[in-house]
Amino acid sequence: MVLDDEDFAEGTQKLTCPGEPITSSHAFMRGHGTYVDNEEVIASVAGTIERVNKLISVRAIRARYSPEVGDLVVGRITEVQPRRWKVDANSRQDAVLMLSSVNLPGGVQRRKLESDELQMRTFFEEGDLLVAEVQAFFADGVMSLHTRSLRYGKLRNGQLITVPPALIRRLKSHFITLPCGVDLILGLNGYIWVSKHLKQNEQEGEDAFDAEAVYSNRNDDIDDATRAAISRVSNIIRILGAHFVPLTDTLLLDAYEWAVEQEGGVKDLLNSDIGDALVSAVAARS
Rank of each mutant, 00 (worst) to 15 (best):
P179T: 10
G181L: 04
Q159P: 08
P67E: 05
G241F: 04
A9K: 09
A27K: 14
W193A: 09
D88H: 03
V45E: 08
R62P: 03
S272K: 11
L188C: 01
G19P: 08
G47R: 02
E39T: 11
D254P: 00
G265A: 08
M143S: 04
G127P: 03
S66A: 04
P246M: 07
V245L: 06
I192E: 05
S216F: 08
G47L: 09
R151N: 12
R92V: 13
E79V: 06
L171D: 14
N219A: 10
E6N: 12
P105R: 13
R62E: 15
R110W: 04
M1F: 09
E202Q: 12
F137I: 11
Q200R: 09
K154I: 03
G190F: 06
Q13A: 15
T177C: 06
I56C: 02
L55G: 05
D223E: 09
Q81L: 13
L184D: 06
E10P: 01
I222L: 03
Y191M: 12
L247G: 03
T248R: 01
R83I: 06
C180Q: 13
L15V: 14
H146D: 15
L269R: 00
V233C: 12
T177F: 05
G107D: 00
V108I: 14
N53K: 12
G141T: 07
T122L: 04
